[in-house]
């Protein structure tokens, strides 16, 4: 199970169309990758690099112009792909979007969490159980009867995540889900994601441009200009600071700090992508000298 491929893309291309139907410049130009079941992948890239478009291909909100795509054992690009399979894929892949306001449907929190299960025809009694459990998982049980418009941004995103958990997905895609949140809200959401991974072992794709979030992942994929630019562990990717800067991305602050010290001639060994690792390196260095 561990090494089962969950998402496989072969040479995917996509171009948005003008209003008159003529294609614009391609946003995705031959993306090939494999993501395994249970992996935690961060997808980085500056605005317009095609990272959100890639996410929208995964559950057929957009259909690729060319290339092949498999998700959770279904080939989305096959001729025989039908409505039933589509719903199954959308159930397996939950998406959380950027604007917390524009993805909540109902006037009561628990009603909103129930929206997904209701759509796929889960029996009433089971919906109730799933909703209660999902709200508990994201720590929003006490807000079950509240109206979503009184919640903070981070709480709304947690409700959105609960709405996805209630559908029992295999993968969760966060499409810049923390971009509109304050630091507190961002931490709430990322901690919830971490907990979900620990408890349910679901695959997570976090599309972001916050480097501090990317370092939490097992694997970082950098997309630039519609192509995969880098792919590796956070340590591997952030070690190539110069190349990241060339495509308009920064390395995490702690990595940048160590790099800057090294450039000035301070001889620090090791890698740092998280504040903890960075503090560790610095104390060890100071003790040595």
């Amino acid at each position: 199970m561990e090494n089962e491929v969950f998402i496989k893309a072969e040479n995917l291309s996509y171009a948005y169309e003008e209003d008159d139907g003529t294609p614009q410049k391609a946003v995705l130009r031959g993306v090939s990758l494999e993501i395994k079941k249970g992996e935690y992948v961060a997808i980085l890239g500056h605005n317009g690099s095609g990272k959100s478009t890639f996410a929208k291909l995964l559950n057929m909100i957009l259909v690729p112009d060319s290339g092949r795509l498999w998700v959770a054992g279904h080939e989305l690009t096959s001729e025989t792909f039908d409505e039933k399979e589509l719903l199954e894929v959308r159930r397996k892949i939950g998406m959380v979007f950027q604007n917390p306001d524009n993805q909540l449907v109902a006037t009561v929190v628990e009603e909103d969490v129930a929206f997904g299960p209701e759509n796929i025809g889960v029996p009433s009694k089971e919906i109730r159980e799933r909703v209660d459990k999902a709200l508990e998982t994201v720590g929003m049980t006490e807000y079950a009867r509240h109206s979503p418009d009184r919640l903070s941004g981070g709480q709304k995103q947690r409700v959105a995540i609960a709405g996805i958990i209630a559908m029992m997905p295999e993968c969760m895609v966060l499409d810049e889900a923390t971009a509109m949140l304050d630091p507190v809200g961002r931490r709430e959401v990322m901690d919830t994601v971490d907990r979900l991974r620990a408890e349910k072992g679901i695959t997570v794709l976090n599309i972001t441009h916050h480097m501090n979030e990317a370092v939490r992942a097992d694997r970082v994929i950098v997309i630039n200009d519609g192509k995969i630019y880098m792919d590796g562990t956070p340590d591997q990717v952030f070690a190539r600071a110069k190349e990241l800067e060339a495509v308009g991305l920064e390395v995490p602050q702690c990595t940048a700090l160590i790099d800057a010290l090294r450039e000035k001639g301070v001889r620090i060994e090791g890698k740092s992508t998280t504040p903890e690792a960075c503090a560790d390196l610095l104390t060890r260095f100071l003790k040595k000298s």
Binding site: K56, I61, I93, M95, F97, Q103, F115, G116, N119, G163
Partner: peptide
Amino acid sequence: VAMECRCYH
């Protein structure tokens, strides 16, 4: 889009 992603049909 969000509703479609949540299987609304």
